[in-house]
């Protein structure tokens, strides 16, 4: 039988998340912390690998003062980004209503508002909310000495989701203008070659 490939964190590929540290039998999991942190008390078996020898999560992570300063800058930058994203979404919504109401009528303006809301919620407001959550967790790591490790993990878990959402949005945002841009340029080129003089006359008038 082929041995299972080992993942970077030491577990076997395909192993379930609930397996005890060291890949022991299910019986060995009795009394173990479900987070994979090892036996709950020293009397429940000898440590088998690095994970079994772990202590409880640290209430204070021993970062240097410069790193804590960097962390506070990260938090500030995240909050500024979140504020700018929400501000952009609001401006886009107000702008679409004002623009539509002036040029296309109130019904079309309401339609544009609906489109702006549908676009802004996933593309601006959702990442902004995730950013605020990450920044709050990291701010507690930097400013308090309570459950630092748990807060860091909470922040990284949200950061992972933020990055995945951003990836999807990025792919969508890049793919759609790319396709539209190429089609638009082709259309514009055809139009310009066929009706160049007419277009020139219109833009000059």
């Amino acid at each position: 039988m082929k041995p299972k490939p080992v993942e970077p964190w030491g577990g076997a590929k395909g192993a379930s998340f609930g397996r005890p540290p060291g890949g022991g039998s299910p019986d060995a999991a009795v009394g173990a912390d479900p987070s994979g942190r090892g036996p709950a008390s020293p009397g429940q078996g000898a440590p088998r690998d690095a994970f079994d020898a772990l202590g409880p999560p640290l209430s204070r992570l021993p970062f240097s003062p410069s790193s804590e300063r960097v962390l506070s800058h990260v938090v500030l930058a995240m909050r500024v980004t979140a504020g700018a994203m929400v501000g952009s979404a609001l401006v886009a919504m107000v702008g679409s209503v004002a623009f539509g109401a002036t040029w296309t009528g109130i019904l079309a303006a309401l339609g544009q508002l609906a489109v702006a809301v549908v676009v802004a919620l996933p593309s601006q407001v959702l990442p902004a909310g995730l950013l605020v959550r990450v920044s709050n967790a990291l701010a507690r790591v930097g400013t308090t000495d309570e459950e630092d490790q748990a807060r860091l993990i909470e922040g990284l878990r949200t950061l992972r989701w933020l990055f995945l959402v951003r990836t999807l949005l990025f792919v969508f945002a890049v793919a759609s203008p790319c396709v539209l841009g190429i089609l638009g340029a082709m259309f514009y080129g055809m139009l310009a070659s066929v009706m160049g003089p007419v277009l020139g006359g219109l833009s000059g008038s």
């Binding site: 970077p8 964190w9 990284l156 951003r166 990836t167 792919v171």
Partner: peptide, 26 residues
């Protein structure tokens, strides 16, 4: 100093690294 990260926490680091990889590729 060694930090007592559990296996699930290491797994999370791995997942975060992959998310970074995807976003960088994007």
């Amino acid at each position: 100093p060694k930090l007592p990260f559990s296996r699930d926490e290491r797994r999370l680091f791995y997942a975060v690294s992959r998310a970074c990889g995807w976003l960088s590729a994007a």
